[in-house]
Computed example of a mutant assay.
Amino acid sequence: MSPPHVDDASYETDQWSPPSHAYWCTYCRAWTHIKYVQPERHPGELDKLNVMLDTCD
């Protein structure tokens, strides 16, 4: 998790995730929508997203 004074937008998905696990599904769905429109991915992002998506019902 990033320090509170740091802009989370400067972190990649594999470096930052929402502190609340309850929000992970919503965050991942939004992230995948954005990446569908702008498909550039960084190493590790897909692995981290899969971990978070595994928590979804």
Rank of each mutant, 00 (worst) to 15 (best):
E40H: 10
S2R: 10
V37N: 06
V6Q: 03
P39Q: 06
K48N: 03
C25F: 08
T55S: 15
S17F: 06
H33K: 12
T13Y: 01
W31P: 00
S20M: 06
H33L: 12
K35W: 01
S17C: 09
K35A: 05
H21T: 11
R29N: 12
N50I: 10
T55Y: 05
K35P: 00
P43A: 12
V51L: 10
D7T: 03
Q15A: 10
A22D: 13
Y11D: 01
V51F: 06
I34N: 06
T32W: 04
E40C: 05
W24P: 04
N50F: 03
C25S: 07
E40I: 14
T55P: 00
A22C: 08
V6F: 01
D7L: 03
Y36P: 00
Q15S: 11
I34M: 10
M1L: 11
V6T: 05
Y23I: 07
H42M: 06
A30K: 13
T32E: 15
Y27H: 12
V51C: 03
D54A: 15
V6L: 02
V51I: 15
A22I: 10
L53R: 14
H33A: 15
W31L: 14
D14S: 15
S2L: 13
C28H: 00
S20Y: 03
S10K: 07
P39F: 06
Q15L: 11
L53F: 10
C28R: 04
P4S: 02
S17I: 09
K48Y: 00
E12W: 08
S10P: 00
W16F: 15
A9Q: 07
M52Q: 07
P4V: 03
P3M: 10
H42D: 02
Q38W: 04
D14N: 14
W24R: 14
D14L: 00
K48G: 02
P18H: 12
D7C: 05
I34Y: 12
S10C: 09
A30S: 11
W24L: 04
C25G: 09
T26H: 11
S2T: 11
K35V: 05
G44H: 07
E45Y: 02
A22T: 11
L46C: 04
Y23T: 13
P19R: 09
Y27D: 02
Y23S: 15
Y23C: 05
V37W: 04
M52R: 07
H21S: 14
P18C: 10
T55L: 12
H5F: 12
R29M: 09
K48C: 10
P18T: 07
